[in-house]
């Protein structure tokens, strides 16, 4: 638990957004102002929760086949590889996704946007990575949607991702964006990421090899999670 044996991450270029980012209005009252304490060393090396495969059904990864009919919108395949910082594939890891429909509307009851709901689209998916850390979803391209952060504010099209890796601190929730989206330079959430390299990592890449003829456009999105420490705690 001594801090001296912990890797000094503060010396590195920041990767994640800061907590306090005033251009993102919702952050103002919800982020700590007191100094953060150093993460206990034992937590840095704590193994994270793991998952069984019994609860993930095949249709969970195909958001176009969860209802009687197909959803409106441009069909897409989103696939990639889940790795840790050391380049190790993360197998059998749970990935959960959620997104707006093609019109930019979530099924969530709190979504006030007056775009239409699609009775054939819920926008929620789950999948486990395979032995090589690869995952694949089929969905439709989400629409942009307005929000009230500032005047004429629109979120660029995005898919929310929730991920678990080897270590407890490898937990990640992020958003995948689409290449060439004209809203990206205007979005405070995307631009809360402090570096060009970090922002680029959130933009998926169109991939003709992943694209299926007569069916769906392919976008590749690889995800890298924090590496796991070595020493589990003793009982």
């Amino acid at each position: 638990m001594l801090q001296t044996d912990a890797m000094d991450v503060t010396q590195r270029e920041p990767i994640d957004p800061p907590y306090r980012f005033d251009a993102y209005g919702s952050s103002r009252l919800r982020v700590p102002r007191e100094p953060l304490l150093p993460m206990p060393g034992a937590v840095r090396s704590l193994r994270g929760p793991v998952y069984g495969d019994g609860k993930v059904a095949p249709h969970d990864a195909d958001l176009t086949r969860q209802h009687a009919g197909g959803p409106q919108g441009e069909r897409i395949i989103v696939a990639g590889r889940l790795l840790d910082e050391d380049g190790r594939a993360i197998p059998n890891a749970l990935i959960e996704i959620w997104q707006a429909n093609a019109a930019g509307r979530y099924t969530h009851k709190g979504d006030q946007h007056n775009a239409p709901l699609d009775p054939n689209f819920s926008g929620n998916g789950r999948v486990l990575t395979n032995a090589e850390g690869n995952y694949r979803f089929v969905s439709i391209k989400p629409g942009a949607y307005p929000w009230r952060n500032h005047a004429n504010a629109w979120r660029p099209a995005h898919i929310h991702f929730s991920l678990f890796g080897f270590g407890y601190l490898s937990r990640l929730i992020t958003q995948m964006y689409f290449p060439g989206d004209p809203l990206l330079p205007h979005d405070p959430i995307f631009n809360s990421v402090p570096t060009d390299k970090g922002r680029a990592a959130l933009v998926s890449r169109f991939d003709l090899a992943l694209t299926e003829p007569e069916h769906a456009l392919g976008y590749r999105f690889d995800i890298v999670l924090r590496g796991a420490g070595a020493t589990p705690m003793e009982k």
Binding site: I15, D16, P17, Y24, S26, L83, D84, E85, D86, G87, E96, I97, W98, A100, Y106, T107, H108, G110, D111, S122, G123, N124, G125, R126, H160, S162, L172, I173, T174, Q175, I189, F190, S192, V193, K197, G198, R199, A201, L202, I223, V224, L225, R226
Partner: peptide, 18 residues
């Protein structure tokens, strides 16, 4: 490898995560 940055969970996660 540089890890993927975090983004907010936003307000609409309920049906997917809970």
């Amino acid at each position: 490898m540089q890890r993927t940055p975090s983004q907010t969970v936003g307000p609409f996660f309920l049906d997917a995560l809970i």
